[in-house]
Design a protein around this nucleic acid. Structure first.
Lengths: 139, 139
DNA sequence: CTCGGTGCAAACTCTTTGCATTGAC
DNA sequence: GTCAATGCAAAGAGTTTGCACCGAG
């Protein structure tokens, strides 16, 4: 995984802890939980508290630096960098591995509603199934 | 909302509490939280504990009577009957109203993956935006 | 009658909040 | 120097677990 230097988000005070959280996010190619992030940060010799991670993530989401998601069966919230591009995932039901899809089914799609109008500003798609390694194996 | 009688799921012990949870789910056309379900049950003069609701829902999901989902920004898990048909929702970002979509963008879609194969067995789609009442209003 | 289901309490996990101190600007 | 950000503790929400009693089969 490569260190990709990006400029610091404008108008946001630059602290050691925020740099660290941003760096962890930059160097992950799948969504992370607050606890994952806190752990990775500790491994980089950056001491910071879990509540601080939550506060930083909240800020990042507000500033649209990061995006918050959840796996469909609920549980913990996950965060990833807002890469300003369309990205959808396929989740393996066996090993939980997350694959990135190269295309988006909503490119040319116009949703229909019987009851009402709706102005669509975003969408979320996840595919479920089995990755190559898990397909055919039990459970 | 109409009482739709369906037969009791096979091989599952029939108790007052389970009938009640099933009935609440049958008569809702949007996903409900465990607490919603518990509340609705109380309104029907069915006393049951929240932990019981969770246990019943876990059973229903295992038996594929119900489906567990979450809104994308995390938080509480929601449950709805497994209606064995394709159904996607649009969620209003302002009032949280949930609209059902009449079509599915994945009918003719074949996902592409650069790295690996993936056998797709299901998918989840949610659209976000603003419903007619909320569009244009602030926040 | 038996054994799984439920009531109830308590624990657990993830997340948020409050307050004093620290550190970026 | 000022005020926002953080460390830390503690509270909150949602969910799970343990155990004794109850009730469906």
């Amino acid at each position: 995984m490569k260190e990709q230097r990006r400029e610091w988000p404008r108008g946001m005070k630059r602290t050691r802890q925020r740099e660290c959280v941003l760096s962890v996010l930059e160097n992950s190619d799948s969504p992370l939980s607050a606890m994952d992030i806190c752990g990775s940060a500790q491994n980089r010799d950056c001491r910071l508290w879990l509540s601080t991670v939550y506060r930083i993530l909240e800020l990042f989401v507000k500033e649209e630096v990061a995006v918050k998601t959840t796996m469909p069966d609920g549980g913990t919230s996950l965060y990833e960098l807002n890469r300003y591009r369309h990205r959808h995932y396929a989740v393996c039901l066996r090993c939980r591995r997350v694959l990135e899809m190269d295309n988006c089914p909503l490119e040319k799609f116009v949703p229909e509603f019987s009851e009402s109008d709706f102005r669509v500003t975003g969408h979320r798609i996840e595919m479920y199934g089995y990755c190559r390694e898990c397909d055919g194996k039990e459970r």
